[in-house]
Design a protein around this nucleic acid. Structure first.
Length: 907
RNA sequence: GGGCGAAUAGCUCAGGUGGGAGAGCGCUUCCCUUACAAGGAAGAGGUCGCAGGUUCGAGUCCUGCUUCGCCCACCA
């Protein structure tokens, strides 16, 4: 085996092969039974079927997999359910764009044919992203792959709708909602993208019908004035005292509208007078309700101006302005109206203004607030228990700061508009009787107004009231988030009492990005409590948003993103995972760039080669014998490395338990690279040449690398499994993925060994430093070094490691004491190091070097002594700190003494 | 307008419960020493965003401010 390992790690063939191997062995599969093991379950956030892997997914799914592998190695029965979301608007948009290339619209195709096309599309591309998750190494139980439009899933969605309807949580309402004129559908408040853009504030004079003057209103959307029905002022606003109740003439439209008093207008803003457009502004809608005002709709679903009904209502069919505006786009009319107002003398002024705008999250079209009839979900009663469980800690947010955000949103929750005027999705299970209410249908039986719906899971045969069979189904579908809100319980089988549900609900943790905290997380908690009677998960870990190096959002359209698959191609999956995990902790955002992956790839290669070194040194040994022999520390260095290993195990365990993946990665990196590779392996080389110590050293190394690879497995599953097959696998335990995770053995923690070895390493570094000073290349042996220990403890400790120090400092002989010949000197905490120099040494240069060092020491000494002279320090600081400072002073003084003496000798 | 994050070496970031600052990349010098040049050895580099305060002592705690980012909010 050892000979077969190539010099550099080639991730590609290893990763594909290992993943396939696990799959075939069934290593990702849970046991659906109570087999005595604790259970661990995650239902992943289902990506949109339109999605393809970006860095956010890569981070999210890597984190999932780390936890799954860790728990599995800890002996849990692990179930992870993957799946995809049908993603109503997103998918419909994608397929509509495809149709457009063929010159078709969905309306031309018709609902049924269009849906066929979408299903085709999903058959072809819908699992792309799940295949990409496999390339990330995700150990999900693919037998359970779910889709939010699966028949069973659809049934669960209808169940929710019907029960909520029966329980009175759903209602039909006419409200001003967010309308996307491009997608032609309503959107909920949290599906919007809010921006601020440069615009204008138009001040318009509305004259009194009788007498002079009028009222000036300000607006950013002058085209909406066509739908104005009043002007409102605050009753407390002194400027309008006595004017309230007078009638104004709406310019262009010629409607007579009242000046009313309402608490809404803010007297400190603009003129304090607000034009009221109930059909096209949510605030104005409320004012309209309070004052019982009409609500003419003047903007159509395609964002063109429609004055037809307005002219009818006002009996003003020949109004030239209204004729001119009719059928034109909203922005075109805005321009025209401003022009006309100016000509007619009503435009008082125009100022630059930053306008807050809402855009459609999916297509970025500017939202038009529009009065329309929609289905709503009454949230307050459903939210109440979901607030309680978080307050009681039954659901815990990590990082904790998100708890406050969640509670804040939930306590101010507003009703949820759940109907969408789309075709792709769960069609609302509500039917309307044509014969009970013929007035609610147009000539082709299209629903105009929703009244007395018959709500049930399947189509009713006849109207329960009149027995008619002429029933029309509600054409709308449900918000995508309505179906994802029940994801955890539904993928486990709800509403059926399945074993999966019984065994694995509530799930263990939900891992997600912050942007869907309200959209998704909050709603899952609500439905879980409502329908299953328990929280859907105990913990919510919200990971960082991945940004690019400049701190900007990674975006395909802006070209500011890094493609995870490209990183996998170039550096391997394990390198990509590592580079992400190295930054995954409690932060809100992380900056990601390619150099990180390069570094991670180098680390993987380091692990590869270190293990390769061990394997190359086992050719005379029987692995099984070594394994049985285990770690038997032979000297302080062995005790040191075992002690450091325990600290690393502890750090990794703690890190994983607390979602601080970065801490775990750093602990592993430091231990493997800086301690094991740079020191321990180097120190083992002479021991391996020593026949008396070879076998023991081999056993130590085998044990050490077995442990290291186990620790590494959640982070870098493929390379660790591949290497472990050569060094750790046994017939009883043939796969690392199911091998036990290391646990701390407190008996192996050895602070004395750690202190001793630290001193040894410091001394070696001091020698190497002197060598570099006189340009003696590493590896070239120098004949002699003198060491003068500062005290007895240091002497004992250092002398014990003389051969090791000689080897690692490339030095033929270390002598104890001070040299008689010319030498360079380097003081450390425990000893002075002298490097004798033959022939001419540059006395001047050495004096300079020592003087620099002396100055440094003096400066530090001054600081320490100043502190010790301060009586308040001595009095108030903790005694151990004072003691420590005194020891420091002693040490510095000794060092100072040595340097000064040395300088004197050299003069 | 409110809430929350962030500000530390040229770049990207670590720095429990306060005791004189660390890593990776980059940079300088040297080395292809049979695990690894995707490597090794030795270095240089920082008034820890600004201003106050608490304390014997402050990246670390408190207050205010500045800049950047995120979230929430109906100011026309």
């Amino acid at each position: 085996m050892a000979q077969e390992l190539p010099k550099t790690y080639d991730p590609h063939q290893v990763e594909q092969r290992r993943y396939q191997w696990w799959l075939e062995r069934g290593d990702f599969e849970a046991v659906i039974a109570d087999d005595g093991r604790p259970r661990y379950c995650i239902t992943i956030p289902p990506p949109n079927i339109t999605g393809s892997l970006h860095m956010g997914h890569a981070l999210n799914n890597t984190i999932h997999d780390v936890l799954l592998r860790w728990k599995r190695m800890q002996g849990y029965n692990v179930l992870c359910v993957p799946g995809t979301d049908h993603a109503g608007i997103a998918t419909q948009n994608v397929v509509e764009r495809e149709l457009l290339k063929e010159g078709l619209t969905r309306q031309q195709l018709g609902r049924e044919k269009f849906l066929e096309r979408v299903w085709q599309w999903r058959e072809q591309y819908g699992n792309t992203i799940l295949m990409q998750f496999r390339r990330l190494g995700c150990s999900y139980d693919w037998r359970y792959t779910r889709f939010t439009l699966d028949p069973e899933y659809a049934d669960a969605v209808l169940e929710v709708f019907v029960r909520w309807w029966q329980d009175g949580h759903l209602y039909i309402g006419e409200r001003v909602i967010n309308w996307c004129p491009r997608c032609r559908t309503a959107l909920s408040d949290i599906e919007l993208e809010r921006t601020e853009e440069a615009g204008k504030l138009y001040h318009i004079l509305y004259p009194f019908v009788e007498g002079e003057g009028g009222v000036v209103v300000a607006t950013t959307r002058p085209e909406t004035m066509l739908g104005d029905v009043a002007v409102a002022v605050n009753p407390a606003d002194g400027r309008y005292q006595g004017l309230i109740g007078r009638t104004l003439r709406l310019p262009m439209v010629d409607r007579l509208i009242p000046l009313i008093a309402d608490p809404y207008p803010d007297p400190t803003f603009g003129t304090g007078a607000v034009k009221v457009t109930p059909a096209h502004d949510p605030n104005d809608f409320e004012i309209g309700q309070r004052h019982n005002l009409p609500r003419p709709i003047v903007i159509s679903e395609d964002a063109t101006i429609n004055t037809e009904r307005l002219r009818e209502e006002l009996n003003a069919h020949d109004n030239p302005y209204l004729q001119k505006y009719h059928g034109k786009d909203r922005y075109e009319v805005r321009r025209l109206i401003v022009e006309d107002l100016q000509q007619a003398g009503y435009l008082v002024k125009v100022e630059d203004y930053t306008v807050p705008l809402s855009r459609c999250e999916r297509c970025h079209t500017v939202i038009e607030p529009l009065l329309s009839e929609q289905w709503f979900c009454r949230m307050e009663p459903i939210a109440r228990p979901a607030i309680e469980v978080v307050k009681q800690g039954k659901v815990r947010f990590i990082p904790e700061r998100y708890t406050e955000m969640y509670l804040n949103w939930m306590e101010n929750i507003r009703d949820w508009c759940i109907s969408r005027q789309l075709w792709w999705g769960h069609q609302i299970p509500a039917w309307y009787c044509v014969d009970c209410h013929p007035e609610n249908f147009d000539d082709s039986y299209r629903l105009k107004r929703r009244e007395s719906p018959i709500v049930q899971k399947s189509a009713p045969e006849k109207c329960p009231r009149c027995g008619s069979t002429r029933l029309v189904r509600d054409p709308d579908v449900l918000d995508t988030w309505f179906s994802s809100a029940i994801w955890p319980q539904t993928v486990l089988g709800w509403p059926n009492p399945t074993d999966e549900l019984r065994l694995f609900y509530p799930t263990s943790v939900l891992i997600t990005a912050q942007e869907i905290l309200y959209l998704w997380v909050a709603r899952m908690i609500m439905t879980g409590l409502y329908f299953v009677g328990d929280v859907p998960f105990h913990e919510v870990y919200i990971h960082a948003t991945v940004l690019n190096k400049e701190g900007r959002r990674m975006s395909k359209s802006l070209g500011t993103g890094i493609d995870p698959l490209e990183m996998i191609e170039k550096y391997g999956t394990d390198a990509l995972r590592w580079s992400l995990l190295q930054q995954a902790g409690m932060q809100q955002s992380i900056r990601f760039y390619e150099e990180r992956v390069v570094n991670a790839r180098n680390f993987a290669n380091k692990v590869w080669n270190a293990t390769r070194f061990v394997l190359l040194n086992l050719n005379d040994a029987d692995l099984e014998t070594l394994r049985q022999r285990g770690a038997q520390p032979d000297d302080v260095l062995d005790r040191w490395v075992l002690s450091r290993l325990q600290r690393t195990i502890d750090a990794v365990q703690t890190a994983l338990a607390n979602y601080c993946f970065d801490d775990g990665a750093n602990a592993l990196y430091e231990f493997i690279w800086s301690e094991v590779c740079d020191w321990y392996i180097e120190a083992c080389k002479p021991r391996l040449q020593n026949t008396a110590r070879r076998a023991q050293t081999q056993a130590m190394l085998v044990y050490l690398f077995d442990q290291i690879l186990r620790l590494l497995h959640p982070y870098m599953p493929h390379i660790s499994e591949e290497l472990w097959q050569a060094i750790g696998a046994t017939p009883d335990c043939p796969a690392l993925i199911r091998a036990p995770f290391p646990q701390v053995n407190p008996a192996l923690i050895d602070p004395d060994a750690e202190a001793e070895i630290a001193q040894v390493f410091e001394t070696i570094r001091a020698i190497r430093n002197l060598r570099a000073e006189v340009n003696i290349t590493p590896g070239v042996e120098i004949p002699l070094v003198w060491l003068n220990p500062a005290d007895d403890l240091s002497r004992t400790r250092l002398q014990r490691h003389q051969p090791l120090m000689e080897y690692l400092a490339w030095c033929r002989e270390i002598r104890w004491g001070t040299p008689t010949e010319r030498a360079l000197m380097n003081p450390t905490d425990g000893a002075e190091v002298y490097l004798p120099v033959e022939g001419v040494i540059d006395i001047g240069r050495e004096r300079e070097r020592l003087q620099r060092e002396l100055n440094r020491v003096e400066e530090e000494l001054r600081r320490v002594q100043a502190r010790l002279r301060n009586p308040q320090f001595l009095e108030r600081a903790k005694p151990e700190v004072v003691q420590e400072t005194r020891a420091q002073e002693q040490e510095l003084m000794a060092r100072h003494q040595r340097l000064a003496t040395r300088l004197q000798q050299l003069s």
